[in-house]
Amino acid sequence: MEAENKFKLFLPALEAESNNNITLISADIRREYTQFALFVTKNRKIIPKIESTYSTTDFPSFSEMVKQFIEDNSLTNIAKLAIGVPGPVISGRSEPQRLPWKLDANEIRRETQIDKVYMINDLEATAYALENFDDNTVLTLHESDDFSPGNVAVLAPGAGLGEAGLFWDGICLRPFATEGGHCEFSPRTADEVEFYHFLQKIYGIVSWESVLSNEGLFNIYRFLRDVKHQRQPEWLTQEIEAGNFSKAIINGALEGKDRICTMVIDTFMIFLAREANSLVLKMKATGGLVITGDLPIMLQKFLNKEKFYKNFIISDKMEAVLKDIPIYLVKDTNTIIKGAAVFAAFSEE
């Protein structure tokens, strides 16, 4: 028996016969690499057929990378192209700070000769990926005792801090993008004020992305090392030099390898719970909190601990609301490319 999907999305062309048995390309663009996948639609689902990864900086434009993927796989009859972008998409255009070039859907359409090009924020794409997820992909971290359907919040720390939402219209959920990760970080305790001043000297404006991301994880670490004078072990020095910091610090905490590893992860989880709290309250997300991204997947053991939940429900007046919010972890690392494909495949005929 097929597992039940917890999320019913608004996809107006899901049933359209014109969207059945079509071939589309989906792309997840990142600073260092871009992932491509070829999908075929069948029975209101997207079926992956081919996957390839390219170095983003090896190409003078995104269109050239698309054409390379098509040539490498001898593809024909591509009906649609879906693009997950790490930044805001406005009127079919985007200028992501992490990418070496600007993106314009109309230019990409002309240069690739693909009639329908869909450009979507990467976290909005992640929200659309919930359409194809079930209990095999989504881990329930906290079940609500008094569930009330409503908006859903999506929080995804990784290379940056992605945030999105799904608006509950009374029948379905409608994904939308935000740039909430760039809102300013607010300290609560004396130590956090000290941490804020440490980051302010580096960034000027301190956003939540400077705290909840791979870079943020390292910021917490170097604050504890340089300001709080925690010892940096030799094995971790080697991992940092090799560019393996995030994985090494998380594994160090999981194994209880060194005090500073545990301190970094404990601090990160407190901040993650707090920003999750803020996002849920701002969206009145009674339908749930979805946590995903490379870091949370690696931090699953810590998310399962009661300490995360206790920090999540801390509030001046809203604890009664927060305690009934279901919390989910999406364990799939390919949400962007799948969600962009879902959006392109079924948002219109």
Rank of each mutant, 00 (worst) to 15 (best):
I114T: 10
L224Y: 13
S315N: 12
D169R: 06
I314W: 01
E107C: 13
D169M: 04
D258F: 08
S144L: 11
N121K: 10
F346M: 07
D191C: 10
A276Q: 11
I29Q: 03
N5G: 15
C183M: 13
P96C: 05
R110P: 08
I47C: 12
F7D: 08
G180D: 15
N73K: 06
M298K: 14
L24N: 02
S186N: 15
K307F: 04
E131K: 05
V264A: 05
E71W: 05
A129P: 00
N304K: 09
A153Q: 05
R93Y: 00
I90F: 15
I313E: 01
F62P: 03
T292N: 09
Q97F: 15
S91I: 02
D226Y: 13
N311T: 00
S94Q: 11
L254T: 06
A164K: 05
D266P: 02
G162N: 06
Q232M: 15
I47K: 10
K201E: 14
G204D: 10
M263D: 14
G92M: 04
K102W: 10
K8I: 04
A340V: 04
N43C: 12
K331L: 12
Q232H: 10
W168P: 09
K284N: 15
F346A: 11
P48I: 04
A79Q: 14
M1C: 12
H142R: 11
K305W: 03
I291S: 01
Q200F: 02
I120L: 13
M298N: 09
G158C: 06
N132P: 00
P48E: 02
M65P: 07
N132C: 12
T41C: 08
S246R: 03
H197R: 11
V138T: 13
T189N: 04
R109A: 12
R188W: 13
P96L: 11
C261S: 14
P233T: 05
D122R: 07
K42H: 12
E4D: 15
D135I: 03
A345T: 09
D58K: 13
N20E: 13
A37V: 02
I325P: 05
L299G: 01
I337Y: 09
D294Y: 11
M65G: 11
W208Q: 07
K228D: 05
L254A: 14
D146C: 12
P175T: 06
S315Y: 06
V211E: 04
G84A: 15
V152E: 04
G165C: 05
E163A: 15
G256R: 03
E349P: 05
T333E: 11
W101G: 13
D72A: 10
E124Q: 15
G181A: 12
E143Y: 02
Y118V: 07
R174A: 12
F39I: 00
Q200I: 00
L295S: 04
L9R: 01
N121A: 04
L99H: 06
G256A: 10
I250N: 09
P12H: 07
L9P: 03
S210C: 14
